[in-house]
């Protein structure tokens, strides 16, 4: 059982720890798992989260930064005051837990629909768009000389990679072709400034409490690039969960997001944000196609994955709303 290995691990780095209780797997793909558990301690239990690749799954997917980089980024963010869980321990090979890290568990909600509907978050919701702007500004300001090695991508390279992914699906979609043409025609070129980009900053990867944003999760797609990419991605309609008139995660307006970002001393380029929103919408659509392919080819033959293939059309209507809006 994983609790035995975790108990041995915590005894080494958590002073006074007497063991581990309540280990439960929260999510798990083939190569990466998230577990929650409590560290038993004389001062009271300490909530913790394990993120790991089990033994034998060392290789990260090409776009992912890897768990070691993720741990380093989260710790850096935590130290800089960007809401992020504190990293408690990076796994070592002799612990027999695979590769990954253990972090402090931040209480709150990540399920987007609950955050957007439940009374508990009613007071936080109107504040979130602006707050997200401020947090992204802090994230984009993390010191580059302390960052782990990360891939670096310009807008042009991102378009080419996306096009390659799309063509490999052999899934001709006129709306996606139109979006690719639009992206090429509106390629903003290299950004004036290259910063850390979170890469998956959206409703669903944020821990929200009654008081607002508590932690930014899932740093695995972090890279170096145009900071406006994060502002565009957080506005993709797929992350508004029905609240389509509130572009920022279903919480609020672009104006509030931009105001929060600029109040923290950084500048917004709205045209670049729009470019990345279109790119993000297409990216999610192509990812839906990728899930369909994995369903067909067998590694994950689940009904859920099959149905995600049928969500690509959601991104088609959203792309049309962005690129060929009808009426007023």
């Amino acid at each position: 059982m994983i609790e035995a290995e975790l108990s041995r691990s915590v005894a080494r780095w958590c002073k006074g720890a007497t063991g581990v209780t309540g280990a439960a797997k929260l999510s798990g793909g083939a190569s990466q798992e998230t577990w929650r558990f409590d560290i038993a301690h004389p001062d009271g239990p300490i909530g913790a989260i394990l993120r790991r690749s089990p033994k034998g799954y060392g290789a990260a997917p090409t776009r992912a930064a890897g768990l070691a980089a993720e741990a380093q980024l989260m710790q850096l963010a935590y130290e800089a005051g960007v809401p992020s869980p504190r990293v408690m321990h990076v796994l070592t090979p002799d612990e027999d837990l695979g590769t990954g890290f253990i972090m402090q568990r931040v209480e709150g909600e990540t399920i987007a629909r609950k955050i957007l509907r439940d009374d508990e978050f009613a007071a936080a919701r109107p504040l979130l768009a602006r707050q997200i702007g401020g947090v992204l500004a802090g994230l984009h300001r993390l010191p580059q000389d302390k960052l782990p090695a990360l891939r670096s991508r310009s807008a042009s390279q991102e378009i080419s990679e996306l096009e390659r992914d799309y063509r490999s699906l052999n899934w001709p979609k006129p709306v996606f072709e139109l979006a690719l043409r639009w992206l090429r025609a509106h390629d903003p070129g290299p950004s004036a400034e290259t910063t850390l980009v979170h890469g998956d900053f959206r409703n669903g990867n944020l821990i929200i409490g009654a008081d607002g944003l508590r932690a930014v999760l899932d740093w695995e797609l972090a890279h170096l690039g145009d900071p406006m990419e994060d502002l565009g991605w957080v506005c993709v309609n797929s992350w508004r969960f029905g609240e389509i008139d509130k572009p920022v995660g279903g919480f609020g307006s672009r104006e509030e997001l931009f105001a929060g970002y600029e109040a923290a001393g950084r500048k917004v380029d709205a045209a670049r944000v729009k470019f990345w929103e279109v790119m993000g919408t297409l990216r999610w659509g192509i990812m839906c196609g990728g899930m369909m392919q994995r369903f067909r080819e067998g590694p994950d033959h689940s009904m859920e994955r099959a149905m995600i293939g049928r969500r690509a059309s959601e991104t088609e209507i959203d792309l049309l709303r962005l690129l060929a809006p009808r009426g007023g």
Binding site: P174, N237, R311, S313, E314, I317, D318, L320, R321, A324
Partner: peptide, 23 residues
């Protein structure tokens, strides 16, 4: 054409999708 085709797809795939209902 793209609008008509996409609306027909959403009518099957996700008729409760908010963008579709709006359109």
């Amino acid at each position: 054409h793209l609008w008509a085709t996409t609306m027909d797809k959403l009518a099957v795939d996700q008729p409760s999708y908010a963008s579709y209902r709006r359109e």
